[in-house]
């Protein structure tokens, strides 16, 4: 009992909260539920859960406010639950520091996978494995951050400066969605206009260099309307 990871579900719909709780308990998690933003903030502070599952639509405060206030003092993984048709909310949630999102409706398998990933990432971040040997690899792709070189299998891929920067940035945050504006600001500075097209052109070039079929990418996945994510092998 004591060793089970605690997961907080912030969700105002009782039926959804119920099913997530029982599913999590059945899968050896310690699930606690908050049904509005105020009690959620109190519970986060007192229980320090391993993962927070957060619905953005709450009766009292906007879910994004919760992300903001949690991120001021903690890096607890936050998985946002949102409806499919609200990319703007998703982008905002990611930019505020949410770790992942899952769109309603979702199956139990999907949610459990996200929770595992979130917990793993949190552990990784804690032990700073991000660049312990300066190399990131997934499937056949290898990115060497020290030498600034990229391989697919045994073949070195020649990327331009910007292309390398994008690949390296996504690799360093593998498994996490990086929003368009985050990538653009990191590459071209805080005053860059949000010109998605330049990013898209670069991405198309990268895909043609590293993916076998750029239309069925294995490494860099698009989150439509939101951003890109480097696969972390899951």
């Amino acid at each position: 009992m004591s060793n089970r990871p605690t997961i907080l579900i912030v969700e105002d719909e009782i039926s959804i909260s119920n099913f997530i709780c029982s599913m999590l308990s059945a899968n050896n998690y310690n699930a606690i539920a908050a049904k509005d933003g105020k009690s959620a903030l109190e519970m986060i502070a007192s229980y320090c859960p391993e993962v927070i599952i957060l619905d953005l639509c709450l009766p009292d405060i906007n879910g994004t406010e919760i992300i903001k206030s949690v991120r001021k003092w903690s890096q607890i993984p936050i998985i946002v639950v949102s409806a499919r048709h609200h990319e703007k909310d998703k982008v905002e949630a990611f930019d505020l520091g949410a770790d992942d999102y899952i769109t309603k409706p979702f199956g139990s398998a999907e949610l459990l996978a996200r929770i595992r990933t979130a917990i793993r990432h949190a552990n990784n971040a804690a032990s700073t494995t991000l660049s312990q040997d300066g190399v990131f690899s997934v499937h056949n792709l290898t990115v060497d951050f020290d030498k600034r070189r990229v391989w697919v299998g045994n073949k070195e891929v020649h990327l331009t400066q910007n292309e390398y920067k994008i690949v390296a940035l996504l690799s360093k945050h593998a498994g996490r969605v990086l929003t368009y504006s985050f990538i653009i600001k990191t590459l071209w500075g805080p005053h860059a206009k949000c010109e998605n097209q330049i990013l898209r052109v670069n991405m198309a070039n990268i895909r043609r260099k590293i993916e076998e079929n750029p239309a069925e990418p294995v490494y860099i996945i698009t989150e439509v309307g939101v951003g890109y994510r480097m696969s972390d092998g899951e």
């Binding site: 998605n196 097209q197 898209r200 198309a204 895909r207 990418p217 698009t222 439509v224």
Partner: peptide
């Protein structure tokens, strides 16, 4: 409407 890369949309739909 926003300018989107067609290949990204298609690959996401297929995924």
């Amino acid at each position: 409407k926003k300018c989107e890369a067609v290949e990204e949309i298609v690959s996401e739909a297929v995924r």
